[in-house]
Amino acid sequence: MPRSLYVPVTATPGDEAAITAALALARRFDAQLTILEIVNLPMPTANPWGLMPDIAIGDVHDRWRAQGQANAASRRAALAGHGVQVEVRVVEALFSDPPRVSVDMAHNADLAVVAGPANDGAEGSVAHDFVASLLLGSGRPVLVVPPGAAAPEAGGAVLLAWRPGAEAARALHDALPLLRDASRVDVVVVDPSPGAEGEQALVDVAAHLARHAVRADMVVQAARGRAVSAIVLEHAREMPAQLIVAGGYGHSRLREWVMGGVTRELLLGSPVPLLLSH
């Protein structure tokens, strides 16, 4: 059961949905919520002899620091009275980019909640950088909330995308508190291993979930040339699911984002939150 939740502010369209979802989950699990306001400070100008001192850059930093503090104060006021323990911290990103700065705090959280990409443009790329940095660098599960999406509720339906491997196994275990409260859990398997060995593997997954008080239905699908992500998203819409659980980045992040992959397509296509583990 998560006792500490963490949300980095990404300055992208999904931030408010991510914070709202984190508030709902913090209330549901009686968890502490920490929100990170990141002040992205510009670097001094570089020249062939190193960094050029710039008197004006100090004024710029002061203005951005003041804006960061103002943003944090406004957020504290907006979140007061929600019945949740909330801390809003302000940190600076000067010699490291904001996604990397966001990783360190996630090490001390049970779950990171972050805005999902809204599109393929610049804002989508920024949100993706936060997701990838947290997923690959924090060692913690990451709940990705698309713009406008709501938090999964107790008693809702959950889709678990399963394939044998470390990422999916971690996602399954990280999602157990949410799976136990679900009214329906569908484990979607695309093109499982043929024969008795593949069948036994599915039986073992269902039995393992049952030992954790999760009743799950195994849904076996044949790809027939379709992308795995398309099959998962189609089934999620048919359920309809409030949450998709999956392993993240079974291949390299660069390969998946440039050439396509299940993680990339789920991030861009899911209308509901994604719980990803690596």
Rank of each mutant, 00 (worst) to 15 (best):
P44Y: 01
A122I: 15
V114C: 09
A72G: 00
V88D: 02
V88I: 00
A122T: 14
D110K: 09
A109S: 07
G83T: 00
A115H: 14
P53C: 03
H107L: 03
V84A: 09
Q69W: 14
A72K: 05
Q85N: 08
W64N: 04
D97S: 11
V60H: 10
R100S: 13
L36H: 09
N47H: 07
A115E: 11
V60C: 12
A56F: 14
V91M: 04
N119L: 02
L111K: 06
V90C: 07
G50H: 11
G116D: 08
G83Q: 05
N119P: 03
A56W: 13
P117H: 04
A73T: 14
Q69I: 06
S102Y: 02
W49Y: 10
W64T: 10
V84L: 06
R63M: 03
G83S: 08
A112R: 03
I57Y: 02
G68R: 11
N40M: 01
L36Q: 13
G68D: 11
G58F: 10
A73S: 15
A115N: 12
G83L: 04
G121R: 11
A93D: 04
W64C: 01
T45C: 14
I57T: 04
A56M: 13
G50I: 10
N71Q: 14
A66D: 13
R65V: 01
R65Q: 06
A109Y: 04
R75T: 13
A72P: 01
V88Q: 06
G68I: 12
V91Y: 03
S102I: 10
D59W: 05
S74C: 14
E92R: 07
G121I: 12
V84G: 01
N108C: 08
H61F: 03
V90G: 01
D120S: 14
D120H: 15
P117S: 12
I35P: 05
N71V: 09
V84D: 04
A78K: 08
D54R: 00
Q85C: 02
D62C: 04
